[in-house]
Design a binder for these strands. Structure first.
Length: 257
DNA sequence: ATGGTTGCCGTGCAA
């Protein structure tokens, strides 16, 4: 089973890229973030024609997440129970016996800002939410834009990024608390090239200079991580004209999970 | 040099 997570930065704008990519890469499950569209405007027919069912938790202009699958999506849950939030950042569904979560973690703007405080609260809520999901679903895969680079090697220049938003201690502590639940950063289960990133700022030709961060992740529960056979960033969609600022992260799981 | 790029029913704001 091949799974991917991709922050598309507007599903409307990126739909041609997404459809071409789905055609080129044989994926079973895709977690999308920043779809920036209401469920009403969701391109279900186009995706169905490409062979995918979809569920979404959409919002106008900002945020919004979705899950696509070749198979049936069961027990769909939107948002985190008990965390009051107008922003649509979480959706979960069970596919082929595996529980999937697509999450768009708060960006946080800058350390010490109100949005940063909201990010830390969101991470706390995500911790409690995923603890519950793990209790119910031993096979759990959480994919998304976490807006956190786990270590200094996950930014192109620690001198610039360390301590700032996306690379600060409290954010990393929040991510490490998720891992301490028994989740594993799928990308680091395998040897990877240095300077592997998933996001590059649109400005200053950051992508062509590989000035990026690794902030998109698949977190796998221990029984699921045991079935992972590879993980890689797919740079092809980021190279296209008018791309998302993120590249997809693909994880291959052995059949029969 | 406090810039720069993208997407949004927007004309500033969030990323």
């Amino acid at each position: 089973m091949k799974i991917a997570t991709w922050n598309v930065n507007s599903l409307k704008v990126r739909l041609p890229h997404l459809l071409d990519w789905l055609n080129a890469v044989d994926l079973d499950v895709i977690a999308l973030q920043e779809i920036k569209t209401l469920d009403d405007g969701f391109p279900s027919a186009e995706l169905a024609a490409a062979g995918y069912r979809a569920v979404s938790n959409g919002q106008k202009t900002y945020n919004g997440v979705a899950l696509l699958a070749r198979g049936e999506l069961r027990d769909v849950v939107r948002d985190m129970d008990g965390f009051a939030d107008d922003q649509k950042r979480v959706i979960a569904a069970t596919i082929n016996g595996v529980r999937f979560v697509s999450v768009y973690v708060v960006n946080g703007q800058s350390v010490g800002s109100d949005k940063y405080a909201y990010k830390l609260r969101f991470l706390d809520a995500l911790h409690d939410y995923l603890a519950g999901e793990l209790d119910r679903h031993p096979l759990l895969a959480v994919g998304g834009d976490f807006n956190i680079a786990p270590t200094p090697q996950d930014s192109h220049d620690p001198a610039i990024w360390e301590g700032g938003v996306l690379c600060s201690g409290p954010e990393r502590a929040g991510l490490n608390r998720l891992l301490a639940l028994g989740l594993h950063d799928a990308f680091r289960l395998f040897p990877q090239a240095a300077n592997s990133f998933t996001w590059w700022d649109y400005r200053q030709a950051a992508f062509s200079r590989n000035l990026g961060l690794r902030i998109d992740h698949w977190l796998l529960s221990t029984p699921l991580a045991a079935h992972a056979r590879s993980a890689h960033v797919d740079l092809a969609p980021r190279r296209l004209e008018r791309p998302s600022d993120h590249a997809p992260l693909i994880v291959d799981l052995m059949p029969g999970v």
